[in-house]
Simulated scan of single mutants.
Amino acid sequence: MNRQERRVERSGEGQPRPDAPALVTGATSGLGRSLARALADRGWTVLVHGRDEGRCAEVVDELRAAGGTAHPYLADLSSLRETAELGRKVAAEHPSLGLLVNNAGVGAGRDSRRREVSRDGHELRLAVNYLAPVVLTHALRSPLRAAGSAQVLNIGSIGQSPVDPEDVQFTRRYDGMEAYTRSKFALAAFTFTIAEEYAADGIRVNCVHPANYMDTTMVTEAGVRPWSSVAEGTAAVLHAVDEGARGASGQYYNESRRAKAHRLAYDAGTQRRLTSLTDRLIAPAEGASGPSW
C-alpha cells in the first residue's frame, strides 16, 4: 500500500457505519471506481452506476470480494429519460438513500472543436455533466429526505465558465473545454441554488473539485499529461463527505480546502435564469410532475 492509498484509508477512521446506501454515478472507472471502493471500505452499501453491464458487474464483484455490499445500476446519462428512470428505480428499491455522488462526466474530448450531442439532442457536456445530475437529484429527493441526514455531493471542477443564456446549447464558436467548464459552472450554481431548500429536509448539498488533471481516461483522452492521482482525488471527495456529515452544506471545496466557486455561481439572478433554462430542458424527461428544485 503506497502513501496515497494509506491516506485514503485513514480518512475513513472514526466514521460511523452508514445505515442507508450510497449511489455513485460513473463508478466503473477512474475516480468513481476508486470512490466506490473507499466507501465500501467504510461500510457503505454502494450502488454502482455505469453504462456497461460487464464493467458494472466487475466493480460489484470486486467490492463484494473485499467484504463489501454492492449492487449494479445501469443507465446512459446522456438520455435524460433514462436518467429519470434510474432515479425512480433506485428510489423504489432503496426508500432511504444516504449519499448521492454525481460523479459521471464527459471531458473536453479528443477533438475540442467537435461538438457532440446527447441522445436527446443536447450539447453532450451540458447533458451529462449538468442536466443529468439535476434530473437524478430531483428523482432521489424523497429517499434522501427519508435518510434523515443525507448528502448530495457534486463532483465539480476548478474550471468554471458562465453559461451563455443566449446560446445554452453552445452552437456558436464551439470549444470542448469551454463546454466542459460551462457545465461545471452550472453544476456549482445548482449546488448553491438547492442547498438551503434541501437543508429543510436534512439534506446537505456540496460541490468538490477533487484534484487537478487526475490520471483518468477523461484527462488522457484530452491529451493532457496527468498532474495528480485518482487516490488524491478520492481523498478530497471523502473529506467533503466528512464535512457534510458534520453539517456543512452549500459549500465548494477545492481539493480538501473550502474555497469559492466562480462569483456568478452565487448570484441570485444568474441562478434564477439558469433554473428557468434548466426547467425547460429537463421537462420532457421529468413528465407531468415537473421540476422540484
Score class of each variant (00 low, 15 high):
164 D>K: 12
164 D>P: 13
164 D>R: 14
165 P>W: 05
165 P>M: 06
165 P>H: 07
165 P>V: 11
165 P>I: 03
166 E>T: 13
166 E>N: 14
166 E>R: 13
166 E>K: 11
166 E>P: 01
167 D>I: 11
167 D>Q: 10
167 D>M: 11
167 D>R: 10
168 V>K: 01
168 V>Y: 06
168 V>G: 00
169 Q>E: 15
169 Q>G: 04
169 Q>Y: 04
169 Q>R: 07
169 Q>I: 06
170 F>P: 01
170 F>Y: 07
171 T>R: 13
172 R>T: 14
172 R>G: 06
173 R>P: 01
173 R>E: 14
173 R>Y: 10
173 R>T: 08
174 Y>S: 10
174 Y>V: 12
174 Y>F: 15
175 D>Y: 12
176 G>F: 08
176 G>N: 11
176 G>W: 06
177 M>R: 15
177 M>W: 15
177 M>H: 15
178 E>D: 13
179 A>Q: 08
179 A>D: 12
179 A>N: 10
179 A>I: 11
179 A>C: 10
180 Y>H: 12
180 Y>S: 07
181 T>K: 04
182 R>H: 06
182 R>S: 01
182 R>Y: 02
182 R>C: 06
183 S>D: 10
183 S>V: 08
183 S>L: 09
184 K>Q: 09
185 F>W: 14
185 F>H: 15
186 A>V: 14
187 L>A: 02
187 L>M: 02
187 L>I: 00
189 A>N: 02
189 A>Y: 02
190 F>M: 07
190 F>V: 08
190 F>T: 08
190 F>E: 07
190 F>H: 15
191 T>F: 02
191 T>M: 03
191 T>N: 08
191 T>I: 04
192 F>R: 05
193 T>Y: 01
193 T>D: 06
195 A>V: 11
195 A>C: 09
195 A>M: 08
196 E>M: 02
197 E>D: 15
198 Y>T: 05
198 Y>I: 07
199 A>Y: 04
200 A>H: 13
201 D>I: 04
201 D>N: 07
202 G>L: 10
202 G>M: 11
202 G>Q: 09
203 I>R: 09
203 I>H: 09
204 R>C: 01
204 R>P: 00
204 R>Y: 00
206 N>Y: 02
207 C>K: 04
208 V>P: 03
208 V>Q: 06
208 V>Y: 04
209 H>L: 03
209 H>N: 10
209 H>A: 06
210 P>C: 02
211 A>I: 08
211 A>R: 10
212 N>T: 05
213 Y>A: 15
214 M>Y: 03
216 T>C: 01
216 T>G: 01
217 T>A: 13
218 M>N: 01
218 M>F: 00
218 M>Y: 00
219 V>P: 09
219 V>N: 13
219 V>E: 07
219 V>W: 08
219 V>Q: 10
219 V>F: 09
220 T>Q: 13
220 T>P: 03
221 E>H: 00
